[in-house]
Amino acid sequence: MIFDNIRRTLLEPLWDEGPNGIFLLFNGLRETVVITAVAIAFGIALGIVISLLRMSRNRLVSGLARAYTEIIRGTPLLVQLLIIYFVVFQAVDLNKTMAAVIAFGLNSGAYISEIIRAGIQAVSPGQMEAARSLGMPFGMAMKEIILPQAVKNILPALGNEFVVLLKETSIVGFIGGNDLMRAGNKIRSITYEATIPLFSTAIVYLVITFTLSQLLIKFERRLHTSD
């Protein structure tokens, strides 16, 4: 019975001369990874900018940066995705992957800016004072003394953000994106069989996130032994 289900949902063509379930899942996974990776890259760039603005002495500038983070963190990602796709890019014919990348990038940029800010603030204020007391200007002290230490706090958290975002991209189906989640769901609706497709989807997510987390733990240990 279960083997029969596996054969029907994953191994055999889903329709005449169509792909099998594994092929669909694999394609979906590729889309998921692409969206996540590009969105994270965009999010890092945006996060750096926002964290700099946030630390600005200009009240208006830092206020705007703060407002951005609050708005992003205070509204559901799904709403943001739908607004980006159906409202902001309604006029332009943007492909779904691009829309997803922009929405997830804008979202993770807010979280990443907080990661960067926290990473910098976790460096003891005495470090900046010591650097400044030697006559180093602020920018030089930041680059030579603070950032190299902050990076050790930031990188593990960034890896974690990647893992979180990978799972969160599972909502791109709402705008018709063909990611891993959508593939699993498609197989379910074609075969009228829920268990195997959904568990397969979950297992693929789990394998990827678990592997990444393990790599992260190793990486973090390496960072700490170099102190």
Partner: peptide, 29 residues
């Protein structure tokens, strides 16, 4: 910055740069 070069400061909690060797701590500035 010009002023601070001429005024050395030693802190209660040392504030050495942990990611730099002793040599680099002394030579970085």
């Amino acid at each position: 910055n010009e002023l601070r070069r001429k005024v050395g400061m030693v802190f209660q909690l040392f504030n050495l740069f942990p990611h730099k060797s002793v040599l680099e701590n002394i030579t970085v500035a």
